[in-house]
Amino acid sequence: MNKQQARALRPKTLVILMPILGISLVLALQLMLSNALASGAHQLVDLKNQSEQLNTDVQILSEEVDSLSSQQNLAEAAQQLGMVSNANPVFLNLETDRVYGQPKPAISEENLRVSGNLISNTAMTTVTDLASLVQNPTVGVATVEISGGEVILSSAMIPASPTR
């Protein structure tokens, strides 16, 4: 065999490189895909954890709201703030300007009107923080400047409350 024949028998560089390049390309693509998948999976797990965390937060907050808005807490808070329910409400008939009922001071002993809570609630784990309300009475209360003067009803006898 002469040199020319031997050269002809030798595989061409391109033929050798093609499969290698092909395999490298496939491996590189696979690596990228795998990375993308792994990163997506991590992101999925993170988001899932975040979602669970938020669900737990919602549960904690909703239990607090339940507790604070329970009749027992409101009654206790009202009593501690000095409120006494009145068993002798007076009704006003705005059409006739008549007053129904006899106004009396709100004294619970007279009419079995109990202000303090007597109904148990073991789910009431959060109670109104009256100390903070007393220190800062405007907390959570939006004040609105009422414009205009006194509102007079058509009957012109009883001025209406400016409350909107």
Partner: peptide, 8 residues
């Protein structure tokens, strides 16, 4: 099971 109003 939660009963927010307790014994109400």
């Amino acid at each position: 099971r939660l009963y927010p109003s307790g014994a109400v």
